[in-house]
Amino acid sequence: MSTKTPSKLEKILSAGHMAVTSECGPPRGSDSEDITKKAEMIKNHVDAINITDNQTSVTRLCSLASCIHLKKMGVEPTLQMVTRDRNRIALQSDILGAASFDIYNILCLSGDHQNFGDCPQGQNVFDIDSIQLIQTVRQMRDEGKFLGGDDINRPPQMFVGAAANPFADPFEIRVPRLAKKIAAGVEFIQTQCIYNLEKFELWMKQACDRGLHEKVYILAGVTPFKSAGMAKYMKNRVPGMDVPDDVVKRMSGVPKENQAEEGINICVETIQRLKEVEGVKGFHIMAIEWEDKVPEIVERTGLYPRPDIS
């Protein structure tokens, strides 16, 4: 496949390599070292690093500024952008801002409802939704035009991504929803954390049956559990998360001091199994406040060293 942007992530995927991405949450403060330190730990083991955009609606240092810090240290950032907090003027403006720093990857999301965060009394925007944001970025890039129709001088060159959650309900539209995002112009997908492998494989098979795996690069999302408590929390408290009972059982079945190791083992096994699944083109490792474990996971799954493509 030929590439459409200068994105390293796109080049790696296009060359047929398994891609590895990870993500960092920006700090609740203005110390840029909180980001650069995390990035330093993982930069040699991943192709690009997502920076979350006020995830779970908790106010943090902005994604764009964090991405610029990564860019300055020579790491490829993926700008996550939610439609919750900005209208179409602000979204387009921030896309241009990112483009001015040559940020080449964007992940289009709607964002968690503000009800979950530190400002539940705040207003939300949702001027457009995630699918429409995909269309917006594609229009800005491919046609060089704003939503309003005017020309953009030096349009953004961004590889356009989105999230997919194979585990949310109703399951029957999860593949049609992927098709919808592809029709909107999405080029890569990072999925929700996968613990229910059977369900993920069923979703993937249905996507392949429709030939969707040839139209979009799908990176399987994984998150290692730090403890049995975290597994239970994810199972019971995080909307749209599917953690099967046997995984929780496996975590609680080992002594507390070994649970972290077991969490990494589960994560490694998951990647090893999913590597063989048709349509999986890489992995998105979301080690929540546990970035130092990413190198180990990448190395143990044979995904290291990363291809050298510039």
Binding site: D112, D129, I131, A164, A168, D169, P170, K180, G240
Partner: peptide, 8 residues
């Protein structure tokens, strides 16, 4: 263009 990933 819903539902979002939180529909449970």
């Amino acid at each position: 263009n819903g539902p979002c990933g939180g529909s449970t």
